[in-house]
Simulated scan of single mutants.
Amino acid sequence: MNKVLSLEELVKYIDDIDRENSVVQFSIPGKGRFTIVLQEEDEQSIYADVNKNPQLELMFKESEEQYRKGLGMTTSDLLKSLKDKDFK
């Protein structure tokens, strides 16, 4: 597993993801291990999945509620929270 030691390295890993290289795993010292998976966006896929699985709809609603309460963060928020000292 690759160690990411700077924000620039993290952005490079994300930028290099494509159809042939759709999964990247890395660790950030002091933060943990991460896996990023590129998924083709299908406008109907989430809606169709939720219709097939009521538990999934509940999970989405719970996740949204936790985010509204400040118990979660977006990917953008995560990237903004990382500082150079996090990679040492």
Rank of each mutant, 00 (worst) to 15 (best):
N2R: 13
N2F: 06
V4A: 13
V4F: 07
L7P: 04
E8A: 03
E9T: 04
L10C: 04
L10V: 07
V11R: 12
K12M: 12
K12C: 10
Y13G: 03
Y13A: 06
Y13C: 09
I14H: 08
I14L: 06
I14V: 14
D15H: 13
D16L: 13
D16F: 15
D16K: 14
D16S: 10
D16P: 05
I17L: 15
I17G: 04
R19H: 14
E20R: 10
N21S: 10
V23P: 05
V24Q: 10
V24F: 10
F26V: 02
S27T: 11
I28E: 04
P29K: 11
P29C: 13
K31P: 06
G32D: 07
G32L: 03
G32F: 06
R33V: 14
R33H: 11
F34Q: 09
F34W: 11
F34H: 03
L38D: 12
L38T: 10
E40M: 08
D42Y: 04
D42C: 09
Q44T: 10
Q44L: 09
S45F: 00
S45G: 03
I46D: 06
I46C: 07
Y47S: 13
A48N: 10
A48H: 01
V50K: 15
N51F: 04
N51Q: 13
K52C: 07
P54E: 15
P54Q: 02
P54K: 14
L56D: 02
E57G: 15
M59G: 04
K61C: 02
E62F: 05
S63C: 02
S63N: 12
S63H: 01
E64N: 02
Q66I: 02
Q66G: 00
Q66E: 01
R68C: 00
K69R: 08
G70Q: 01
L71G: 07
G72N: 12
G72K: 03
G72R: 06
T74A: 08
T75I: 11
S76I: 11
L78R: 06
L79D: 06
K80R: 10
K80T: 08
K80N: 14
K83T: 14
D84Q: 14
K85W: 01
K85P: 04
K88G: 08
K88Y: 14
K88L: 15
